[in-house]
């Protein structure tokens, strides 16, 4: 029964999201909606929430989304969180090689290349890493939500190439005042082997190198297997038991405020 409760709300949301997938030019079958509802979702309103030619109010409406993210881990600071609105594309797809922009984020925590992608129509980035247990708030504005998807991404900085986020979540039907809450999973960019070795991890556990253009053998995005650490049998690891994590990594609430 638990499975039923967990999957059905997400299924409803995804169902609503599927109408706009067909004109997605990326080599994809469907958005990778890797997320789960943690609260009862408000039903997705099928009515277009924004009418730019509303005769009563001819001035363009500014849409505003407030995004609140909480770091649920014990000791994994999350690199400055990036959020973006886009109509096409995905920051990552499980089973596909990471883009160079994703590799830069996943290995070093730098989100600037991802946010500079041509598909991004509105963006925001936190100015500092999000410490464990802490919460941060970001705001996205745009003239319309028509066809818009929201992506959020951040690196677990005490890993080789681990990241978490929301992947092309359909927000086009959100109404003013509506809030949706999700939890996020841990992914592995598949671009750097999880050696956990000294000098390879950019976070405070090591202070090592972030991005390196070399690619590991797998070279495909997968779910993250977790870190091992020196306390759990990887003698050459700079990580300890405190750096271990499990899904979920973050709670994210998206509220349409305007």
């Amino acid at each position: 029964m638990k499975l039923f409760r967990l999957t059905l709300p997400a299924a409803c949301l995804v169902l609503a999201a599927c109408g706009s997938d067909n004109d997605d030019p990326m080599p994809t079958t469907m958005p990778d909606e890797d997320m789960q509802m943690v609260d009862d979702p408000a039903p997705v309103d099928p009515v277009d929430p924004v009418d730019p030619v509303d005769p009563v109010d001819p001035t363009p409406t500014t849409v505003e989304l407030m995004i609140t993210a909480t770091n649920l881990t014990y000791a994994q600071p999350l690199s400055p969180i990036a959020v973006a609105l886009h109509q096409e594309g995905q920051f990552w797809q499980v089973g596909e090689p990471a883009s160079n922009a994703l590799e830069v984020l996943a290995e070093g925590g730098d989100n600037s290349d991802l946010l500079a992608l041509g598909v991004v129509q509105s963006k925001a980035s936190a100015t500092a890493p999000l410490p464990p247990g802490k919460k941060t708030q970001l705001t996205l504005t745009h003239d319309s939500l028509d066809g818009q998807k929201l992506s959020l991404i951040s690196m677990m900085v005490n890993t080789n190439d681990g990241f978490t986020g929301l992947n092309a979540l359909d927000v086009s039907a959100m109404t003013v005042g509506q809030a949706m809450t999700f939890t996020t999973h841990a992914y592995d960019a598949g671009t750097e082997a999880n050696t956990e070795a000294q000098g390879t991890i950019p976070g405070p556990a090591d202070g090592g190198t972030g991005f390196s253009a070399d690619r590991e053998a797998l070279n495909k995005v997968a779910m993250h297997p977790g870190v091992v650490g020196m306390d759990d049998g990887l003698t050459t690891s700079v990580l300890t038991s405190s750096h271990k994590f499990d899904n979920p990594l973050m709670t994210v609430t998206i509220t349409r405020t305007k």
Partner: peptide, 24 residues
């Protein structure tokens, strides 16, 4: 669990390869 010994150790599996987190 796995370990980092290719020979010996407790496990024949590798701790940096054969672990996972749900969902799978």
């Amino acid at each position: 669990l796995g370990d980092d010994d290719t020979t010996g150790g407790k496990s024949d599996l590798h701790n940096t390869v054969h672990r996972w987190l749900n969902p799978v």
